[in-house]
Design a protein around this nucleic acid. Structure first.
Lengths: 396, 396
DNA sequence: CTTACTTTCTTTACTTACTTAAGTAAGTAG
DNA sequence: CTACTTACTTAAGTAAGTAAAGAAAGTAAG
């Protein structure tokens, strides 16, 4: 197979039905190369001729599209007490979704998770390309198999390899905010943007960076936006430092502030909190002005250094975004240097299943990525995609 | 020529005399490829066999080195009232240096600069690969020819093309802090590091980012570290915003604070200020504690997001670094998330000629870089290096 | 001082992944 | 019906790598 074949597959996957001629122009390849590459993909059953596009004065183009069911991917998003997951096809269409109780703090959490996943894999008809797991914590960049997560009470747990061995399937782990960034760069507006960043609001405050079209992982991790200093000498954070953004602007922090002020009871949900604040301007001001201001400053500082084209804002917390927006934007634009304020902002509504969808994107990314990873699991994903429907092609 | 030839040239240039076998191992290429690549470079007169290394049990290696004088590069660093420059050979050895008065505010500043450079180019024997100009301001990422600089009172001045046309030589412009980052990544400790950042202290506070071994330019610029918000509601900055780091921690800001406190007279130099502060602990505390603290926090925040391996600190202001260090480090490490505090810090002493040397590095970088630039001038630099001694090689 | 071994570099013959050139296929425009 | 576009295919060539084999130049052991 040629180098370009993967690029072609990637382009077809992300840009929907396209003609060979269009791909040749976009990817800077010659016609014959595309004939070859698509023939390969066609033979493997990964690609079909979808339709004819109307002529523009010459021979009409034959549009190529992905064979949606040539492979399936499972994606799971882990939380403290449950796991949400989806099964998608190559076009990232959700075939089904599931939610199961899962106790991350138990001694045999990994076993429990393995059982849970085994049940799902049995439902899959056809080729399972791999399982992606989104984790609210840090995944070791060395083996992308072990994870640390305060939220799950995990300390160097080797989830990836254990599950992979038990189920005989590639398993890819990634920080859940990063999975979101990958989703945007594959299927969202981040497709045509080389440098952008994603922030998530919720229990924590996270950031995923995409640089030159690829997820940036840093040398010792990256995107610890929640632990950027927001008020010097501020209150202590879970991480051991003081005055972190998360201590002021995360959902729990705002909840605690509302409780202290007597606006809500201890058991009140964030949704309830938002609704109370929406009805009373003073309460809204009291609870959201400072966080929004500090978030704006902190993000502006990252923009000043990083110069992105696009900012995605997401996470469970964006459901209450209307309470942030005005103050946030004022504070943001007041603190970005004038030459750099050309970026766009996009606020994504968010639900649990979408987090899981993000987890599938890691696997799809691995199979479509141009860079050959050092990681064994992601190489295996690639191989599975290539030989996915080999048996069928033997006929031709 | 093969793709690898440039990589080989780059490796020889940065890692000094090396054997073919060593290069093959380091670059992941086969022996034959190296024989081919070096033959090409040898024929063009760019590379020579420097010496034999002692045997390690087998055939001793023939070490290859750059032919230092196969090309020369001029580098200039512009300031408000003068220009400092050097001429270097391919090994970045300074052949001579110069300093000339130059008024950046004049109407025909570009003409004056052209004249000044013409004089220098006439002194060059052999092939001039190009001229690098380091500018205290923003260089347009689109054409890398026009520059904005508050310090030089330049507003969209098309310096690059004008000088290039007049002298018939490639001219490359770059922000002066970025030139420093390139120097470190080519010849400094940044050679073996993929992600690092450079900050400079002085009239302004700048930052250059190297990501995956290449200078990161952002989509709309990058590294505006001096205009990161350091105190919300702080004093107004030249840039129009309030509370920028530069307003508190730049040399002029500290000078102004010292003047206001009556420690120095208006005409006192920074060197004098440092000396006064070194003698009196209270004065030192008064002038440097807050800036050092805020610099530490601001840098920590960048580190939290970016996760670099290495930090370079440089600029005119580092001569007084002893007054910053203690408070700075305390503040820095208190605000970096624990998982990321593995980075090294390196403080570089600095002089005017070194800025100019940085400017030559842009040109050398362009000729050695793996990525083919969209920029006409840097492509021209590459071509010049390749045909530099073609006439000589015609003999063989 | 021969023989065996190691390491470096070169040569030859191949493979891979593209290209250009020339043609075929299938439409529109006059 | 003919000329012109645009899309795709086939065939042949080229560039840049590899692997295998061997020559060159040393060390080490008998």
């Amino acid at each position: 197979m040629r180098d370009s074949t993967n690029e072609v597959l990637r382009a077809i996957a992300t840009y929907g039905p396209v003609s060979r001629a269009q791909l040749a122009r976009d990817l800077g390849l010659s016609g014959p190369t595309l004939t070859q590459a698509t023939k390969y993909l066609f033979d493997r059953g990964l690609v079909t001729e979808v339709e004819q596009s109307p002529s523009t004065g010459g021979r009409p183009a034959t549009l190529l599209g992905l064979v949606a069911n040539a492979g399936q991917v499972l994606g799971v998003k882990l939380a403290e007490d449950h796991a949400v997951g989806v099964c998608v096809n190559l076009q990232s269409e959700i075939l089904w979704s599931f939610e199961e109780p899962f106790s991350s703090r138990g001694d045999d959490a990994v076993k429990e998770l393995t059982q849970l996943l085994r049940k799902q894999t049995k439902l899959i008809k056809g080729q399972l390309l791999g399982i992606g797991i989104g984790i609210p914590g840090v995944v070791s960049p060395l083996d992308s198999s072990t994870a640390d997560s305060a939220m799950l009470s995990w300390n160097k747990i080797n989830v990836g390899k254990q599950i992979s061995d038990a189920l005989n399937t590639p398993v890819l782990l990634e920080n859940d905010v990063n999975t979101l960034a990958i989703t945007e760069s594959l299927y969202g507006h981040g497709r045509d943007v080389s440098n952008f960043l994603t922030i998530t609001l919720g229990r924590g405050i996270g950031m995923g960076l995409v640089i030159n079209g690829e997820l940036y992982a840093g040398s010792y991790g990256a995107g610890e936006f929640g632990h950027v200093n927001a008020i010097s000498g501020g209150p202590e954070c879970e991480c051991g430092k003081y005055g972190c953004l998360e201590v002021i602007a995360s959902s729990p922090a705002i909840h605690a502030a509302a409780l202290a002020a007597g606006y809500i009871s201890r058991s009140a949900s964030m949704t309830k909190l938002w609704n109370i604040a929406r009805k009373d301007k003073k309460i809204a001001n009291d609870l959201f002005k400072k966080p929004a201001e500090l978030l704006g400053i902190a993000l502006a500082n990252v923009i000043n250094v990083f110069g992105p084209e696009l900012i995605f804002i997401s996470g469970e917390g964006v459901e209450g975004w209307d309470l942030w927006e005005e103050t946030f934007k004022k504070s943001l634009y007041a603190n970005v240097v004038p030459t750099m304020n050309k970026f766009d902002i996009e606020v994504d509504p968010w639900d649990d299943a979408k987090w899981a969808l993000g987890a599938t994107a890691i696997v799809l990314q691995a199979s479509l990525s141009r860079s050959q990873s050092t990681n064994a699991s992601s190489t295996e994903v690639k191989n599975r995609l290539r030989i996915a429907t080999k048996s069928e092609s033997r006929v031709s």
